[in-house]
Amino acid sequence: MRNFKVILPAVFLLVLLGLLLPLARQWAEGGPFISYRADLRRTPLRLYWKDDHNQRFKSLEGLKKWLDARGQKLVFAMNAGMFDPGFAPQGLYIEARKTLVPLDTTSGPGNFYLKPNGVFYLTADSSAHICQTADFRNDGRVTYATQSGPMLVIDGRLPPAFRAGSANVQIRNGVGILPDGRVLLAMSRKKISFYDFASYFKKAGCRQALYLDGFVSRSYEPAAGRPQTDGDFGVIIGVTAPKQ
C-alpha cells in the first residue's frame, strides 16, 4: 500500500507535466500568436503574386521553391490580403511600383468592406506605412502595396465597432507598424475575435494595424518550428535572406 501511495503522486505529476509542456512551449514560441518583426533597413520584405512566367505562386511552398532557385531563403511568409474567385487581389495591389489592381473605394459585404479599410504599403526609402483607404496617395514612391480591411488599429485606438467577447471568431492574420518603424506580421494560432486580435497589435505598440485575411491564413516560420507550406492564395508577403 505504501508503494502505491508513492507511485500515484508520481504518475499524477508525469501526466500533469505532459499536459503543461505543450502549453509552455506554445507560450515560449509567442503564445497564441505567430509573429515576426521585420526591420526593413536590414531585411528584404516584399509582396508576391505571380512569377516571371505570369503563374500564381499559390502556396507558401510555391514561393519558397521559386526563391530557392534564385539563391534566396524564405525566412517568414504569410498570405497578404483577400482575393476574388480568380485569385486576383481584392483592392489595390502594387508590385515593383506598378499598379496591377486599382484602389477599391466602393462599398460591399464582407470583411474587406468593413469601414474603415486600409492599405499597407512600402516606399522607396525602405519604410512601411498603413493608412485608411480614403487617405492613400501614391506619389510615385510606393514600391509595394496591398489593400484589405478592416483597419485593426487607427492612431493607437481600436475601431469602435470591435467588441470584447464577440462571438465572431476566426483564424486571423494582419500587419502593424511598430513605434521603431519595424513591421509586425502576425497570425493567430486559434480562432479569435477582431477585438482580441486588434488588441494584440495595440499592446505591441502599433498605432496603425491592418487585417489581412481569415480562415485561409497560413504562415511560414521554420526558425520557430512553424514551417507551414500549404495554402492557395492570391498575394503573399515574404521576408527573405541570401542563402548561405
Rank of each mutant, 00 (worst) to 15 (best):
L47V: 07
W27K: 04
A28P: 09
A38M: 11
R37A: 06
E29S: 11
D52A: 10
D51M: 08
P44L: 11
N54A: 04
K58G: 05
W27N: 06
D52Y: 00
S35F: 05
R46I: 03
L40M: 08
L47I: 00
D51E: 07
K50I: 07
G30A: 02
L45K: 15
W27P: 08
N54C: 09
P32R: 00
S59I: 01
N54K: 01
H53Y: 05
P32L: 14
F57Y: 14
E29D: 04
F33H: 00
Y36A: 06
N54Q: 14
D39E: 11
L40I: 14
R46H: 09
R41G: 15
D39R: 10
L45D: 08
Y36L: 13
P44V: 10
G30Y: 13
A38L: 08
P32Y: 11
I34L: 06
K58E: 00
R56G: 11
K50R: 12
G30V: 08
N54H: 09
W49A: 13
L60Y: 00
W27L: 15
S35L: 01
P44R: 01
R37P: 00
R56E: 04
D52N: 10
P44F: 03
W27R: 11
H53D: 11
R56M: 07
D51Y: 12
W27F: 15
Y36K: 06
S59Q: 04
H53T: 07
Y36P: 12
F33G: 02
Q55V: 01
A28G: 09
R42T: 15
R42E: 15
A28T: 05
Y48I: 02
R41V: 07
G31Q: 13
Q55D: 13
L60C: 01
D52G: 15
A38S: 06
S35M: 04
L40Q: 09
S59D: 02
I34C: 04
H53N: 12
A38D: 13
L47F: 11
R46F: 06
D52Q: 04
L60S: 00
S59E: 03
S35A: 05
G31F: 00
R46A: 02
E29T: 01
R37Q: 13
A38T: 06
L47N: 05
